[in-house]
Computed example of a mutant assay.
Amino acid sequence: RLRKKERLVRERSRQILEAAAKVFARKGFHQATMKEIAEEADIAPGTIYLYFKNKKDLLVNIPRLVTEPLLEEMQELGEGVFSEDALKQLVRRHLNRALEHVEIFKVLFSSLSLMDEKTKEEYLRRTPLYLAGEVEKRLRQGIEMGLFRPLDPTIAARAFLGMIFIFFLSQEIMPGKLIAPLDYDQVVDEVVSIFFHGILKRQSREG
């Protein structure tokens, strides 16, 4: 369990990031000011700098609002290999959390072109690559235990997250749900099934 001081730091950081996400979504990254973010968070402007260096630091840390709770949920599942049902449950939680914070992802996508290479690298390291690393670790364990066939766990982990991500991107960031809406429960079931079993038809025992 987190100690009281660590918990307070995390809560204040989250408060600031939530305020930054709202202001960035409302005004855009470049037009937003630290003063406006402080007002949204109901804190003194100088308080922000105790937790974050500048606006870019806020931007690359905003995904923590989604990823930190998800990683905590992954840890609650234990260190073992994912079962098919456990992975479905985890992905559903992740999608539900992402849907609650669609504005955050809109801010990030609209700001990617404004980031320099170092900022993009930091964003990738802290968010999608970190999540992929957690999935990769479970896959590697499964391969070592003989549960999964030999494959590159890094590629497999990123491919899996990519399948989920493209559905979210097309449905929520682009107008996919207006053109061809999809049921997320069905998406999760199909993607996890493809990931575990592939798309080739299984031959019958008699065959």
Results as ranks from 00 to 15, higher is better:
Tyr51Leu: 02
Pro63Glu: 10
Ile62Gln: 03
Lys56His: 09
Asn54Val: 02
Val60Asn: 05
Leu70Ser: 05
Asn61Ser: 12
Pro63Val: 00
Leu50Thr: 10
Gly78Pro: 06
Glu79Lys: 12
Lys56Val: 00
Glu73Lys: 15
Lys53Pro: 03
Tyr49Val: 04
Leu58Thr: 01
Pro69Cys: 14
Leu71Trp: 05
Glu72Lys: 14
Gly78Met: 06
Gly78Asp: 05
Val66Phe: 08
Leu65Tyr: 02
Leu59Lys: 03
Glu76Tyr: 02
Ile62Phe: 00
Gly80Tyr: 04
Glu79Gly: 15
Thr67Asn: 14
Gln75Met: 08
Tyr51Asp: 03
Glu72Ala: 14
Glu76Ala: 14
Glu76Arg: 15
Leu70Val: 14
Glu79Gln: 12
Leu65Glu: 07
Thr67Trp: 11
Pro69Val: 14
Thr67Lys: 06
Glu72Val: 14
Gly78Arg: 09
Leu71Val: 15
Lys55Met: 05
Gly78Leu: 07
Ile62Gly: 00
Leu65Thr: 01
Ile62Leu: 11
Leu50Asn: 10
Met74Trp: 03
Met74Cys: 05
Val60Gln: 03
Asp57Glu: 11
Gln75Trp: 04
Gly80Ser: 06
Val66Thr: 08
Lys56Leu: 06
Tyr51Ala: 02
Tyr49Arg: 10
Leu71Pro: 02
Leu70His: 10
Thr67Cys: 08
Asn61Glu: 09
Glu72Asn: 06
Leu77Ala: 13
Pro63Cys: 02
Thr67Met: 13
Glu72Gln: 13
Asp57Phe: 07
Met74Asp: 11
Leu71Met: 15
Leu50His: 14
Thr67Ser: 15
Lys53Cys: 03
Leu77Arg: 13
Glu76Phe: 04
Val66Lys: 00
Leu50Cys: 00
Gly78Ala: 03
Phe52His: 07
Lys56Tyr: 10
Asp57His: 10
Phe52Ile: 06
Arg64Lys: 12
Glu76Asn: 12
Val66Ala: 10
Ile62Cys: 07
Asp57Ile: 00
Phe52Cys: 07
Leu70Arg: 02
Leu77Val: 01
Val60Arg: 11
Tyr49Trp: 02
Lys53Tyr: 13
Pro69His: 12
Lys55Glu: 09
Phe52Gly: 06
Phe52Trp: 03
Glu79His: 08
Leu59Gln: 05
Asp57Asn: 10
Met74Phe: 12
Pro69Ala: 11
Pro63Ile: 01
Arg64Met: 10
Asp57Met: 04
Tyr49Phe: 14
Leu58Asp: 02
Val66Asn: 07
Leu50Lys: 09
Gln75Glu: 15
Tyr51Arg: 01
Lys56Ile: 00
Leu65Ser: 05
Leu70Pro: 00
Glu79Ala: 10
